[in-house]
Computed example of a mutant assay.
Amino acid sequence: MAEKPILYYFDGRGRMESIRWLLATAGVEFEEVFLETREQYLKLQEDGLLLFQQVPLVEIDGMKLTQSRAILSYLAAKYNLYGKDLKETTLINMYTDGTMDLIFLITVVYFKPAEEKEKEIELILEKAKNRYFCVFEKILKNHGQDYLVGNKFSWADIQLLEVILMVEELCANVLSEFPLLQAFKKRISNIPTIKKFLQPGSQRKPPPDERYLTTVRKVLQF
Protein backbone atom coordinates (compact mmCIF):
# COMPACT_ATOMS: atom_id res chain seq x y z
CA MET A 1 0.00 0.00 0.00
CA ALA A 2 1.29 3.44 -0.92
CA GLU A 3 2.22 5.72 1.94
CA LYS A 4 -0.16 8.53 2.72
CA PRO A 5 0.83 12.00 1.51
CA ILE A 6 2.15 14.21 4.31
CA LEU A 7 1.19 17.87 4.33
CA TYR A 8 3.41 20.37 6.15
CA TYR A 9 1.62 23.61 6.93
CA PHE A 10 -0.21 25.55 9.61
CA ASP A 11 -3.38 24.23 11.24
CA GLY A 12 -5.50 26.45 9.04
CA ARG A 13 -6.46 27.17 5.46
CA GLY A 14 -3.95 29.36 3.65
CA ARG A 15 -2.34 27.99 0.53
CA MET A 16 -2.72 24.40 1.69
CA GLU A 17 -6.51 24.32 1.77
CA SER A 18 -7.02 23.82 -1.97
CA ILE A 19 -4.59 20.89 -1.75
CA ARG A 20 -6.64 19.37 1.07
CA TRP A 21 -9.77 19.82 -1.03
CA LEU A 22 -8.25 18.08 -4.03
CA LEU A 23 -6.90 15.12 -2.06
CA ALA A 24 -10.14 14.69 -0.12
CA THR A 25 -12.20 14.83 -3.32
CA ALA A 26 -9.98 12.15 -4.85
CA GLY A 27 -10.64 9.99 -1.79
CA VAL A 28 -7.00 10.09 -0.72
CA GLU A 29 -6.20 9.92 2.99
CA PHE A 30 -3.40 12.22 4.10
CA GLU A 31 -1.48 13.11 7.21
CA GLU A 32 -0.66 16.60 8.42
CA VAL A 33 2.30 18.06 10.27
CA PHE A 34 1.32 21.43 11.70
CA LEU A 35 3.90 24.19 11.98
CA GLU A 36 3.59 25.81 15.38
CA THR A 37 7.07 27.19 16.05
CA ARG A 38 9.69 29.18 14.19
CA GLU A 39 12.15 26.37 14.86
CA GLN A 40 10.06 23.84 12.91
CA TYR A 41 10.00 26.13 9.90
CA LEU A 42 13.74 26.83 10.06
CA LYS A 43 14.47 23.10 10.38
CA LEU A 44 12.61 22.43 7.11
CA GLN A 45 14.74 25.11 5.48
CA GLU A 46 17.98 23.76 6.94
CA ASP A 47 17.11 20.28 5.69
CA GLY A 48 16.74 21.68 2.18
CA LEU A 49 13.05 20.77 1.94
CA LEU A 50 11.71 24.23 1.13
CA LEU A 51 12.93 24.95 -2.37
CA PHE A 52 12.08 28.65 -2.23
CA GLN A 53 11.93 28.91 1.57
CA GLN A 54 8.13 28.70 1.49
CA VAL A 55 5.37 26.36 2.58
CA PRO A 56 3.19 24.49 1.71
CA LEU A 57 5.28 21.35 1.48
CA VAL A 58 3.76 18.04 0.40
CA GLU A 59 5.56 14.71 0.64
CA ILE A 60 4.12 12.29 -1.93
CA ASP A 61 5.35 9.52 -4.25
CA GLY A 62 8.92 9.85 -2.98
CA MET A 63 8.97 13.58 -3.75
CA LYS A 64 8.93 16.64 -1.56
CA LEU A 65 6.92 19.21 -3.46
CA THR A 66 6.64 22.93 -2.85
CA GLN A 67 4.76 25.71 -4.67
CA SER A 68 1.01 25.23 -4.36
CA ARG A 69 0.27 25.57 -8.07
CA ALA A 70 2.76 22.82 -8.97
CA ILE A 71 1.39 20.57 -6.22
CA LEU A 72 -2.20 21.05 -7.35
CA SER A 73 -1.30 20.39 -11.00
CA TYR A 74 0.46 17.16 -10.05
CA LEU A 75 -2.45 15.95 -7.94
CA ALA A 76 -5.02 16.84 -10.60
CA ALA A 77 -3.09 14.83 -13.19
CA LYS A 78 -2.43 11.93 -10.81
CA TYR A 79 -6.07 11.54 -9.79
CA ASN A 80 -7.63 12.08 -13.22
CA LEU A 81 -9.03 15.51 -12.42
CA TYR A 82 -7.54 17.22 -15.46
CA GLY A 83 -8.80 17.46 -19.04
CA LYS A 84 -8.66 14.74 -21.66
CA ASP A 85 -6.44 16.81 -23.97
CA LEU A 86 -4.26 19.92 -24.03
CA LYS A 87 -7.19 22.25 -24.77
CA GLU A 88 -9.25 21.06 -21.82
CA THR A 89 -6.22 21.11 -19.53
CA THR A 90 -5.52 24.70 -20.52
CA LEU A 91 -9.11 25.72 -19.80
CA ILE A 92 -8.90 24.06 -16.39
CA ASN A 93 -5.64 25.91 -15.69
CA MET A 94 -7.23 29.20 -16.75
CA TYR A 95 -10.30 28.71 -14.57
CA THR A 96 -8.32 27.56 -11.53
CA ASP A 97 -5.93 30.50 -11.89
CA GLY A 98 -8.97 32.78 -11.73
CA THR A 99 -10.46 31.13 -8.67
CA MET A 100 -7.05 31.04 -7.00
CA ASP A 101 -6.75 34.81 -7.44
CA LEU A 102 -10.03 35.22 -5.55
CA ILE A 103 -9.03 32.68 -2.89
CA PHE A 104 -5.81 34.63 -2.30
CA LEU A 105 -7.72 37.90 -1.81
CA ILE A 106 -9.87 36.23 0.84
CA THR A 107 -6.89 34.54 2.49
CA VAL A 108 -4.98 37.77 3.04
CA VAL A 109 -7.95 39.87 4.17
CA TYR A 110 -7.91 38.15 7.57
CA PHE A 111 -4.42 39.55 8.18
CA LYS A 112 -5.53 43.15 7.51
CA PRO A 113 -5.91 45.63 10.39
CA ALA A 114 -9.47 45.88 11.65
CA GLU A 115 -9.91 49.37 10.23
CA GLU A 116 -9.06 48.13 6.72
CA LYS A 117 -10.79 44.76 6.81
CA GLU A 118 -14.39 45.89 6.29
CA LYS A 119 -13.50 47.95 3.22
CA GLU A 120 -11.40 45.10 1.81
CA ILE A 121 -14.28 42.64 2.25
CA GLU A 122 -16.59 44.97 0.33
CA LEU A 123 -14.05 45.05 -2.49
CA ILE A 124 -13.74 41.26 -2.47
CA LEU A 125 -17.51 40.84 -2.71
CA GLU A 126 -17.69 43.31 -5.59
CA LYS A 127 -14.94 41.47 -7.45
CA ALA A 128 -16.45 38.07 -6.67
CA LYS A 129 -19.75 39.05 -8.25
CA ASN A 130 -18.61 41.29 -11.11
CA ARG A 131 -15.28 39.76 -12.11
CA TYR A 132 -15.48 36.06 -11.23
CA PHE A 133 -18.94 34.63 -10.54
CA CYS A 134 -20.48 36.36 -13.56
CA VAL A 135 -17.86 34.65 -15.73
CA PHE A 136 -18.57 31.17 -14.40
CA GLU A 137 -22.32 31.74 -14.63
CA LYS A 138 -21.83 32.58 -18.32
CA ILE A 139 -19.61 29.52 -18.91
CA LEU A 140 -22.27 27.22 -17.46
CA LYS A 141 -25.01 28.94 -19.42
CA ASN A 142 -23.15 28.83 -22.74
CA HIS A 143 -22.40 25.11 -22.74
CA GLY A 144 -25.39 23.93 -20.71
CA GLN A 145 -23.42 21.18 -18.99
CA ASP A 146 -23.01 20.13 -15.37
CA TYR A 147 -19.27 20.80 -15.17
CA LEU A 148 -16.99 23.61 -16.27
CA VAL A 149 -14.85 21.74 -18.80
CA GLY A 150 -15.64 18.90 -21.19
CA ASN A 151 -18.76 17.84 -19.26
CA LYS A 152 -16.40 15.99 -16.91
CA PHE A 153 -15.77 16.63 -13.23
CA SER A 154 -12.37 18.27 -12.77
CA TRP A 155 -10.09 20.27 -10.52
CA ALA A 156 -11.77 23.43 -11.86
CA ASP A 157 -15.11 22.37 -10.38
CA ILE A 158 -13.55 21.55 -7.01
CA GLN A 159 -11.82 24.89 -6.69
CA LEU A 160 -14.86 26.86 -7.83
CA LEU A 161 -16.95 25.24 -5.10
CA GLU A 162 -14.21 25.96 -2.57
CA VAL A 163 -14.18 29.68 -3.37
CA ILE A 164 -17.99 29.91 -3.53
CA LEU A 165 -18.18 28.61 0.04
CA MET A 166 -15.42 30.99 1.15
CA VAL A 167 -17.23 34.00 -0.30
CA GLU A 168 -20.52 32.87 1.24
CA GLU A 169 -18.81 33.02 4.63
CA LEU A 170 -18.41 36.75 3.98
CA CYS A 171 -21.89 37.25 2.48
CA ALA A 172 -24.44 34.45 2.69
CA ASN A 173 -26.55 35.58 -0.28
CA VAL A 174 -23.71 36.35 -2.69
CA LEU A 175 -25.10 33.85 -5.24
CA SER A 176 -28.58 35.40 -5.31
CA GLU A 177 -28.02 36.72 -8.85
CA PHE A 178 -26.45 33.50 -10.15
CA PRO A 179 -28.99 30.65 -10.41
CA LEU A 180 -26.68 28.36 -12.38
CA LEU A 181 -23.96 28.71 -9.76
CA GLN A 182 -26.52 27.95 -7.06
CA ALA A 183 -27.38 24.71 -8.86
CA PHE A 184 -23.67 24.02 -9.45
CA LYS A 185 -22.93 24.44 -5.75
CA LYS A 186 -25.66 21.99 -4.78
CA ARG A 187 -24.62 19.47 -7.44
CA ILE A 188 -20.89 19.47 -6.63
CA SER A 189 -21.49 19.53 -2.86
CA ASN A 190 -23.35 16.23 -3.17
CA ILE A 191 -20.46 14.33 -4.76
CA PRO A 192 -19.82 11.70 -2.05
CA THR A 193 -16.20 12.50 -1.24
CA ILE A 194 -16.91 16.24 -1.20
CA LYS A 195 -20.02 15.76 0.92
CA LYS A 196 -17.87 13.84 3.39
CA PHE A 197 -15.21 16.59 3.39
CA LEU A 198 -17.88 19.19 4.16
CA GLN A 199 -19.03 17.32 7.27
CA PRO A 200 -17.85 18.32 10.76
CA GLY A 201 -14.77 16.42 11.86
CA SER A 202 -13.11 16.30 8.43
CA GLN A 203 -9.69 17.79 7.69
CA ARG A 204 -11.29 20.84 6.13
CA LYS A 205 -10.21 23.93 8.05
CA PRO A 206 -12.49 26.66 9.42
CA PRO A 207 -12.09 30.36 8.61
CA PRO A 208 -8.93 31.82 10.15
CA ASP A 209 -9.20 32.75 13.81
CA GLU A 210 -6.86 34.77 16.01
CA ARG A 211 -4.94 31.67 17.11
CA TYR A 212 -4.15 30.77 13.49
CA LEU A 213 -3.20 34.34 12.58
CA THR A 214 -0.91 34.64 15.60
CA THR A 215 0.80 31.32 14.80
CA VAL A 216 1.46 32.27 11.17
CA ARG A 217 2.89 35.65 12.17
CA LYS A 218 5.10 34.02 14.81
CA VAL A 219 6.44 31.29 12.55
CA LEU A 220 7.02 33.48 9.48
CA GLN A 221 7.95 36.57 11.52
CA PHE A 222 5.90 39.23 9.78
Rank of each mutant, 00 (worst) to 15 (best):
M1Y: 00
A2C: 12
E3L: 10
E3G: 10
E3H: 11
K4Q: 12
P5R: 02
F10L: 06
F10N: 03
G12C: 06
R15G: 04
E17C: 10
L22V: 13
L23Q: 01
V28F: 08
F30Q: 00
E32H: 08
V33T: 02
V33F: 00
V33M: 03
T37W: 08
T37L: 04
T37C: 07
Y41W: 08
K43V: 09
D47S: 07
D47K: 07
L49R: 01
L49S: 02
L50F: 02
L51T: 04
L51G: 06
L51D: 03
F52H: 04
F52Y: 11
Q54K: 05
Q54W: 05
V58I: 05
E59C: 05
G62Y: 09
S73R: 03
Y74D: 10
Y74F: 11
A76S: 09
A76I: 07
A76P: 09
N80T: 07
L81G: 09
Y82E: 15
Y82T: 14
G83V: 12
G83Y: 15
T89P: 07
M94T: 15
Y95F: 11
D97F: 03
T99L: 07
D101L: 07
L102E: 11
V109E: 06
Y110P: 05
Y110R: 05
Y110L: 03
F111I: 01
F111R: 03
P113F: 08
E122V: 02
E122A: 12
L123N: 04
I124P: 15
E126H: 14
E126Q: 14
K129P: 13
K129W: 15
N130H: 14
R131G: 01
Y132E: 02
F133I: 04
C134R: 09
C134D: 05
V135C: 05
F136A: 11
F136P: 14
L140E: 03
L140P: 04
N142R: 06
D146N: 08
Y147C: 09
G150M: 10
N151D: 13
I164R: 07
I164G: 12
L170R: 10
A172N: 15
A172W: 00
V174K: 14
S176H: 12
S176V: 13
E177D: 15
F178I: 09
A183Q: 00
A183T: 06
K185C: 03
K186D: 08
R187I: 09
I188C: 10
I191V: 13
I191S: 13
P192A: 04
T193F: 14
F197W: 15
G201W: 02
S202H: 08
S202V: 15
P207L: 13
P208S: 11
E210A: 06
E210K: 01
Y212R: 03
L213P: 10
V216P: 01
V219K: 04
